[in-house]
């Protein structure tokens, strides 16, 4: 939202006296050719689907289409909110989002602080390069790695736990629902940890070095420098990112749940998007699927707007 304002501000700054739109269009025809096709595609695939929201207020049948289907008002939403599975799915979505958000937030800050303390730059760069890799591989690859690692039949996680004497029997991680949230959280952390340090390392790199020098002169050790200079330097960015990410808490992806979930763990693995897909494609109830999308969008919009409001307050130092 702040981007929008900034963009509008900068673009209104320069306005030449108008010459009449036809001659302007003529003189800028090249710019029009360069921008309009791309914009049409963007509009088609971003805005036109909103039209489909009508389906949530109908008893939609694919054969009759949006125009032929019968309107039923808020019936779909009533059915949705009466469904006990809806609340289970909502719980799964929220819990997994919050766990991933928390783990990623703490993990990224700790890793960035530790990397920042490394003076041997070849080592630092190597670790960075390695930890960025998982960000670039698909969830399918990650799911494969998890399946191999967690296999009760010689997977490296089970082997490690058994060698360390923590367990005696291999654990069937993939078949027990209670592990699913943890598997999801650790997989996400493993995939994105390195990547999410980029922004924090950039902030740490921008901290005025004179601060560290002055602290050294005053006799500060590296821990007090970390506590009094590095960490306070990170806090504004960290808070901003945390607040902004909170806005997307219902839309944090479904790939890992789709790939790693199975009927055995579905009570813990199903999230809103998969629930919507299930209704639409397996049961054929498109209206309910759309109603779930609408619910998600409305909650997200409210969250995004309120966290943006919070972030702006934070930016001006009004809270915290």
């Amino acid at each position: 939202m702040r981007t929008i304002e900034r963009v509008i501000k900068t673009s209104t700054r320069i306005q030449k006296p108008s010459k009449g739109w036809l001659s302007t269009a003529k003189s800028q025809y090249q710019l029009i050719i360069m921008s309009i096709p791309a914009m049409l595609i963007l509009i088609l695939f971003s805005y036109v689907p909103l039209w489909g929201w009508i389906m949530a207020f109908q008893k939609y049948s694919p054969a009759k289409g949006v125009f032929g289907s019968e309107f039923t008002g808020l019936d779909t939403f009533r059915t949705l909110f009466k469904d006990p599975i809806f609340y289970e799915v909502l719980r799964n979505t929220l819990v997994m989002s919050i766990m991933s958000l928390g783990a990623g937030f703490v993990g990224a800050i700790v890793l960035a602080l530790l990397l920042n303390e490394v003076k041997f730059s070849l080592f630092k760069r190597t670790i960075q390069t390695i930890t960025y890799i998982p960000h670039f591989v698909s969830w399918i690859v990650i799911a494969n790695i998890i399946l191999v690692g967690l296999s009760p039949d010689g997977g490296f996680i089970n082997e490690l736990l058994m060698t360390a004497g923590i367990i005696n029997e291999p654990i069937y991680f993939m078949a027990e629902g209670k592990w699913f949230w943890w598997i999801h959280t650790f997989a996400g952390l493993w995939k994105e940890l390195g990547w999410s340090t980029i922004i924090y390392l950039a902030v740490l790199g921008g901290v005025n070095t004179e601060l560290y020098e002055a602290a050294s002169v005053d006799g500060a050790g590296r821990f007090s420098k970390m506590r009094h200079i590095s960490i306070p330097g990170l806090i504004p960015t960290a808070m901003m990112l945390l607040i902004l990410n909170t806005g997307w808490i219902l839309s944090s992806g479904f790939e890992s749940q789709f790939l790693l979930g199975s009927n055995l763990v579905i009570e813990y693995s199903q999230v809103l998007d998969l629930y919507a897909m299930n209704y639409a494609f397996s049961i054929g109830d498109y209206s309910l699927g759309v109603a779930i999308s609408i619910f998600k969008s409305i909650v997200s919009i409210i969250l995004v707007l309120s966290v943006n409001f919070l972030a702006r307050k934070l930016d001006q130092g009004k809270i915290f």
Partner: peptide
């Protein structure tokens, strides 16, 4: 910021 959702 806008998304019609998966099904639409």
């Amino acid at each position: 910021y806008v998304s019609g959702g998966l099904i639409p």
